[in-house]
Design a protein around this nucleic acid. Sequence first.
DNA 1: AAATGATTGTGAAATGAGTAACAAAAATAA
DNA 2: TTATTTTTGTTACTCATTTCACAATCATTT
Lengths: 214, 214
Amino acid sequence: MVSQNVPQATAERLPLYYRTLQSLVAVGKTRISSSEFGDLVQIDSTTIRKDFSYFGALGRKGYGYDTQYLMDFLRKTLYQDELSKVVLIGVGHLGTALLNHNFQKNNNTKIVKAYDIDPSLIGTEVSGTEVHAMDTLATDDNSDITAAILTVPAAHAQKAAEMALASGIHGFLNFSPTTLSLPATAYVRHVDMTVELQALIYFLNHSMEERNSQ
Amino acid sequence: MVSQNVPQATAERLPLYYRTLQSLVAVGKTRISSSEFGDLVQIDSTTIRKDFSYFGALGRKGYGYDTQYLMDFLRKTLYQDELSKVVLIGVGHLGTALLNHNFQKNNNTKIVKAYDIDPSLIGTEVSGTEVHAMDTLATDDNSDITAAILTVPAAHAQKAAEMALASGIHGFLNFSPTTLSLPATAYVRHVDMTVELQALIYFLNHSMEERNSQ
DNA sequence: AAATGATTGTGAAATGAGTAACAAAAATAA
DNA sequence: TTATTTTTGTTACTCATTTCACAATCATTT
């Protein structure tokens, strides 16, 4: 097995690589060099070669990388070809947007159900996803669920996360502007759009010269 | 003037500090030590002291930090006490969610108008924000606008960004799963929820031991 | 088949970020 | 007032990440 000495920074770039390769394959591009790929994703070509090198020799010298092969390899690495099931908690505007966005298109990831407290939503389908009652969350068996997407108001985020954890979910993608405090068995990623916007404005105000995001 | 030798990593944490301080002030807490603050935001206290130290001596030894003073200082640093005007491009589900979320509550940031192509939306208000026709974007004078939030489908993101740039906007918060290629005068931050979720799942699959996100 | 050019993979160097340790200073207690 | 405790600001260190530089290798051209 590969893994485990792959740096965090590299691991975080893999999804971007994967998504970009999908586009390349889709438009019929069969090979690409690290520098061309780097221009595309706006990451230095050396960084790209080094990232790939953690998984062995994926390219061919003097040729570049086979897009299809590399894409397949990354898919296996990222998802081990299994479908990852995800639940969404909080079918508000943001939650609905995510249900529509619908992850399963490109990835091996699917939102299999949603939870909400609103009685008028419970039992209905939103973008093809069934909405369950929040009450049932803590007692449901969600041990086959990889992660929960939290799109509830800040005030309810902590409680919702605890209920999800009780149901057997250990991964969280938290969109609420709150810090969750959960036991070490949980793994949380925080996406705060307010923070993102503020950071953007800070960089603009302090006119970071040639700095490139992401 | 301060700035310019503030590390990127520090700058990215400032909005989080600011938001947390707002909560503290709101509940009447007048002073806080770096370690208590660190527990709150889940960042090492040394990192916090070091972050603040880039802006001079903001605390008092043996006492800690004055929450109100620190909050005011950060507000000035982040926004220089000016209201930052922002536009939103693409009033779909995600765009609507952001309009509702409404940034102006806590920050000196306001979405002043939105753009969309849908004739049934143009001229209406969504969550109190007027929707303008996409056609008018490129020719509008938006030189007083700090940033554009891009929530259009991937296929339209590049064109929309170019039009916004033409109207005088230089900062972009891009929610579309596409890499924008814009001149160096533009500054782009990319928020890709697909990537975030994929990264989360990767870390879960490769069970990163005690790692903490954010 | 040989020569040329392209491009990878990688060790070494440089940069950047996070952590530990502690002196200096202020607050608080005696 | 004096002693003790708290807590900052900062220097030095460690660890992680990025960039550089280039040999090795393969593709392509002649």
